[in-house]
């Protein structure tokens, strides 16, 4: 199936929760999904026999300065097709359902997005920092992040 056909399937099933087919100037063509429906959409993509997205390639986070996004690259090894989903989240309170129960890959990817961008994945089995030390303050890939002057007595200046 082409991504456009997948988009049509999703719109037919989930209606308003699915945004228009988007082909940005830069980056991958993708489908915007309402945060509240993300888990249901992903479960459908994984379990529908015609779609059968059995492989989550990656989850990435984006800081657009006015909002955050969580982006999902999905692939079906059975059918050889792929699609990209994007959920836009409030910068002040970025929360979206975890998909770690659907694809175990999501576990570490969501921890990384939490660590570096502060996106909260609700229902994640253990949303802890994965790269930075546990006691690090802030989420460094946010555009307004300021590096600390020192960490444990070692200065950064």
């Amino acid at each position: 199936m082409t991504p456009q056909e997948i988009h049509a399937r999703l719109t037919e099933r989930f209606g308003d929760a699915i945004g228009p087919w988007t082909e940005p100037e830069r980056g991958d063509p993708h489908i915007a999904v309402a945060p509240g429906s993300l888990h249901a959409v992903c479960a459908f993509l994984r379990d529908d026999p015609e779609l059968k997205f059995d492989y989550l390639q990656l989850i990435s986070g984006v800081d657009w300065t006015d909002r955050l996004s969580s982006v999902y690259h999905l692939m079906s090894l059975s059918h050889g097709h792929g699609v990209v989903l994007r959920v836009d989240l409030e910068r002040g309170n970025p929360r979206v359902a975890s998909v770690a129960d659907l694809w175990p890959t999501a576990d570490w990817h969501e921890r990384e997005a939490w660590d570096l961008l502060g996106i909260v994945y609700e229902g994640h089995p253990g949303l802890r920092r994965i790269l930075l030390p546990e006691d690090w303050e802030g989420h460094p890939l946010r555009k307004d992040y300021a590096a600390p002057a020192a960490y444990h007595g070692v200065t950064n200046a």
Binding site: P140, A147, P148, V154, T155, N156
Partner: peptide, 13 residues
Amino acid sequence: KHGYHVVKGIDRI
């Protein structure tokens, strides 16, 4: 400059 996570020279430690 932008390496918030890097020790800026090990002679600091």
